[in-house]
Design a protein around this nucleic acid. Structure first.
Lengths: 228, 228
DNA sequence: TAGATTGTTAATCGATTAACAATC
DNA sequence: TAGATTGTTAATCGATTAACAATC
């Protein structure tokens, strides 16, 4: 009954909690009071046993014979994820991707308000995007301090990413989300996640190829070895 | 010596092949002829034993005492991923995210040229973005047929995503990359991958919270239970 | 009480990693 | 031959899932 104490939530479970959170939010909007693991699983695209196991790591928040109270479970998931408060983010790089992220409603609505935009192009500094003034890279430290920024988002080309990561760490952010296709190194204690948009396409490409293989389709590009 | 025949490459390995590919590409640009599993691991941010195991699923392409020939290994990885040919993509939704994706150099340079842009806003249809004319949603089938499109990218809000997915499937694409934060259902035989930009922030938030916990920091937001 | 659904167990499967024989 | 590095084994760890007792 008490919230789990020793606790360690497996990584695989942590990665699914945001999905449950989103689905529960939709259920809440539709006015659902409770949901069974079966239904939550269906809506989330996973196995029902997995849902129950995942939720059991948070504590014992279901009611046997009934299901889970939507409001209550949503609160507990938000709590586990640390989303009962807002975490302002700074986006570094106001190119196409940076602008898309700044406009992306999903950030603010899910607890990550875009507090600041930063770019090193003098032509952009001082202009506004969606009501946020673009600041210079040299102001990063002040921006992070003044706006209480916890998370830095890197939305610039790979070549400058490590330098920006270093600046973000110096400026005091504790977490970095990197969209540049390059492996970054950060000090211990700084959380780092990497998203590579093209990687997803490459994985798709692999699966596409193998689905076709199974069906006996011929893939001419797959044959022939080059030199050596 | 012969390319592996029975083959099944584990999912975890498939997910890392694009990383090795990118790192090998950088090594190639720098003129490196060979690379050891130790160095490739370091540059990719993984364990050296894992690199060797991953690569062994593709075949036996290393040279003991020497390492891996960069060019040859790169070819074999591209081959395994099905990237020895180009896979044109169509991007549905020319909002901020769609435009960012269309401009993203990483797509074209890694074998996924943006063949077409599609939007259902009449004001956008017929205009150009980065040299590509924006077509109407109703033309999707023609676009896919005429431009030999294999992959559809969904870059619209969640509410319309399932309908667009259905249209893409009808139009004949075999793979879908979905950026809308909603679970899609597609027929068997269609490959689907989901990217949720906010999910990454939420996972970061969790890890941030627990790093702090370990250090004995107090998190006021974590306490107190709501009603019930 | 009967029906429904959770929380947990235990079996299974897949992924990681150190260690080392094979071999360049 | 000596040194380096692969490819593979085997031990370990973590994730998934069916099954079911507990209980609303």
């Amino acid at each position: 009954m008490a919230p789990p104490s020793g606790r360690t939530i497996p990584d695989a479970t942590v990665a699914r909690l945001p999905i449950y959170q989103r689905v529960l939010g939709e259920l809440q909007d539709r006015g659902a009071a409770t949901v069974s693991s079966e239904d939550l699983a269906e809506l989330s695209g996973v196995n029902a046993a997995k849902v129950r196991k995942d939720l059991s790591f948070l504590g014992s928040y279901g009611i046997r014979g009934v299901g889970y109270e939507v409001d209550y479970l949503l609160f507990q998931i938000r709590n586990a994820l640390g989303l009962t408060q807002q975490w302002p983010v700074v986006i570094v790089g106001v190119g196409n991707l940076g602008r898309a992220l700044a406009d992306y409603a999903g950030f603010t609505s899910r607890g990550f308000p875009v507090a600041a935009l930063v770019d090193d192009d003098p032509a952009k500094v001082g202009t506004e995007h969606v009501g946020i003034v673009i600041r210079a890279l040299s102001e990063l430290r002040d921006v992070v301090r003044d706006l209480d920024v916890a998370i830095g988002v890197i939305a610039i080309p790979a070549s400058g990413a490590q330098r920006v990561a270093d600046l973000l760490v110096e400026a005091g952010v504790s977490s970095i989300l990197n969209f540049a296709p390059t492996v970054l190194s950060v000090p211990d204690g700084v959380n780092l996640r990497q998203v590579d948009l093209a990687v997803e396409l490459q994985i798709l490409s692999f699966h596409r190829r193998h689905r076709n293989r199974e069906r006996g389709a011929v893939d001419p590009a797959a044959e022939s070895n080059p030199r050596r």
